[in-house]
Simulated assay, not measured.
Amino acid sequence: MAGSRNNHYKPLNGALSTIGKSPKMGALALAIGERLAGNANAVGDSTYEAHAAKVTSGWANEKRAGAVVREVKPHWRDWQDAVLVRVTAAMRVRGRK
């Protein structure tokens, strides 16, 4: 019906914040970071590692679960070839269906 309101819907204020701060989300972010680091290690000459990190997110700029991938042993060719950027782009494209 046009104009009718769904009286059964109740917003869950703070739900995204709760999900973003959960240990499961932290584990998922770290797993994605480890996959990214592994792929970069496979194609590059540098050494990459993933670490759990808190990221700023949401309207209130809260600290939420995340991960960071760092180049821990750099090689000049990886910088020149933008290995981490290319691997990230390739993983993004592969995820689309």
Rank of each mutant, 00 (worst) to 15 (best):
A2C: 01
G3K: 03
R5G: 04
N6K: 12
N6V: 12
N6C: 11
N7R: 11
H8S: 15
H8E: 09
K10P: 00
K10W: 03
P11F: 13
P11L: 07
L12K: 15
L12H: 12
N13H: 15
G14V: 09
G14Y: 12
G14M: 10
A15S: 12
L16I: 04
L16D: 09
S17L: 15
T18E: 14
I19T: 13
I19D: 05
G20W: 04
G20Q: 04
K21V: 09
K21G: 08
K21A: 11
S22G: 13
P23L: 01
K24F: 00
K24M: 02
K24Q: 07
M25T: 11
M25R: 07
M25S: 05
A27S: 12
A27H: 05
A27C: 01
A27R: 09
L28G: 03
L28Y: 07
L28D: 05
L30Y: 04
L30D: 01
L30V: 09
A31E: 12
G33V: 00
G33Q: 06
R35S: 13
R35T: 11
R35V: 10
R35G: 11
L36W: 07
L36V: 11
A37F: 03
A37N: 02
A37L: 03
G38M: 07
N39S: 11
N39Y: 09
N39I: 08
N39E: 15
N41W: 06
A42E: 10
A42G: 08
V43M: 08
V43P: 06
V43Y: 06
V43C: 06
G44Q: 06
G44T: 05
S46C: 02
S46R: 01
T47L: 07
Y48M: 01
E49Q: 15
A50E: 00
A50V: 06
H51M: 13
H51E: 14
A52E: 12
A52P: 11
A53L: 09
K54G: 11
V55N: 09
T56C: 01
S57T: 15
G58L: 14
W59R: 10
A60E: 13
N61K: 15
E62V: 10
E62Q: 14
E62W: 04
E62C: 06
K63S: 15
K63M: 14
R64C: 08
R64I: 05
R64Q: 06
R64M: 14
A65F: 02
G66H: 03
G66T: 08
G66S: 07
A67L: 04
A67F: 00
V68N: 10
V69K: 00
V69F: 05
V69S: 00
V69L: 04
R70A: 05
V72T: 15
K73C: 07
K73D: 11
H75K: 08
W76N: 08
W76K: 07
R77M: 08
R77H: 05
R77W: 02
R77Y: 03
D78S: 02
D78V: 01
W79A: 09
A82P: 03
V83F: 02
L84K: 01
L84T: 02
V87Q: 03
V87W: 00
T88S: 11
T88M: 08
A90E: 12
A90F: 02
A90L: 10
M91T: 03
R92M: 11
V93T: 15
R94A: 14
R94I: 00
R94D: 12
G95A: 09
G95I: 13
R96H: 05
